[in-house]
Amino acid sequence: MNMPDFIAGMTWGFMGVRGTWANDEARHSMEQMAAATGASWTAIAFSAIQATANSTEIPYWEAPTVTDEEVRWAIREAKSLGLNVCLKPIVNCADGTWRAHINFFDKDVPCEPKWSDWFRSYSAYILHFARIAEETGCEMLCIGCEMVQTDRREAEWRQLIAEVRGVYNGLITYNCDKYQEDNVGWWDALDIISSSGYYPAGDWEAQLDRIENVVKTHGKPFFFMEAGCPSRSGSAAIPNDWTLAGPADQDEQARFYEAMFRACDSRDWVQGFMLWDWPARLYSREEAAADDGYCVYGKKAETIIYDYYTSKRRNEGMEQ
């Protein structure tokens, strides 16, 4: 599949645990997402859980990870709504450590956990879902998300990408973390460069200047595999901090989206977004004003996104 002109996307399902997909509530959520945002793409995102940042086993077949059938269900639902699908398996740590800190010694030490053991387990996880992505016709596969300490392990990532290409024929990307676009040395092995766009509302121009150098150096398509902001006072200045204390504030979230879209719209190499995020279990519209999370359902940013996406799709000739 060739890179689309523009990815008008929304991430669906993350934080969903086993048993919360493949039901009427999840179906309603996805239907509302497609209708309310004007999206043409969705990233179906879920997590497997390793115990700590230094554990080498990722038991993706165990709860709380959603089941294979729940994943297949979500893909079918998305496609029934006319959405292109990026399958996005993610790793998290049970003890709460952020996945960016998964790390091991660069040189093997007896009796210590090793990169080779971790990549063996991680590769089995990604290849399992790469096969499902192929079977179900997913247009894209994201093989990793914000795993900053792993980024330097170029040989292992190149090996995994080669193995994925042996079982999956769609587009392949890796979602690097914010500020890390120029720290990944293996973009050439992928089809698309993507990153997390959690940049302060007033800093987009400077960050886009930096990212543009990476994109031009590698000559690859680029989009933001994540981007978003909580509807919380102060969040537009630090949109990656989901723990920031403050009252619910729809205007704050709306200002972030306006600033991001305005800055990115002047850069023709930014080929879209997979916005963060839309849960499988959706709050009601009546509860939207009190919700201070990333989801835009029933909030002012919802209309901003819908207008932007429908305009981009119309201009690119993508309207269905």
Rank of each mutant, 00 (worst) to 15 (best):
M1H: 10
M3Q: 07
M3S: 00
A8E: 10
M10E: 12
T11R: 14
F14G: 01
F14Y: 14
V17Y: 05
T20I: 02
E25K: 07
E25W: 00
E25H: 02
A26G: 01
H28D: 05
S40I: 06
W41M: 09
I44G: 00
A45G: 03
F46K: 10
I49K: 14
A51F: 09
S55D: 14
P59T: 12
W61F: 08
A63N: 15
V66C: 01
D68T: 14
V71M: 09
L81P: 08
G82V: 10
C86I: 11
L87K: 04
N92P: 09
D95C: 03
W98F: 14
W98M: 12
R99W: 08
I102V: 14
I102W: 00
N103I: 01
F105T: 06
P110I: 04
P113C: 00
S116N: 06
W118S: 01
A130D: 06
I132N: 14
E134A: 11
E135G: 07
T136K: 10
G137V: 09
C138E: 00
L141H: 01
L141T: 02
I143C: 04
G144C: 08
G144Y: 06
G144S: 06
M147L: 13
D151C: 01
R152D: 00
E154C: 00
Q159A: 06
E163Y: 03
V164I: 04
V167T: 05
Y168I: 02
Y168L: 07
N169R: 13
G170F: 01
G170K: 12
G170P: 03
L171C: 00
L171G: 00
Y174F: 12
N175D: 15
K178S: 12
D182R: 06
W186Q: 05
I192P: 07
I193D: 03
S195C: 09
S196K: 12
D203I: 01
W204Y: 09
W204Q: 05
R210F: 03
K216L: 09
T217F: 04
G219Y: 11
K220A: 02
P221L: 06
A227Y: 12
S231G: 07
S231M: 05
S231Q: 08
N240M: 07
A245I: 11
E252C: 11
Q253G: 03
A254F: 08
M260T: 05
F261E: 11
A263G: 01
Q271F: 02
F273N: 14
M274F: 06
D277H: 15
W278G: 04
P279W: 05
L282R: 13
Y283C: 03
E287V: 00
D291Y: 10
D292G: 01
Y294I: 13
G298I: 07
K300T: 11
I305K: 15
R314A: 13
M318A: 05
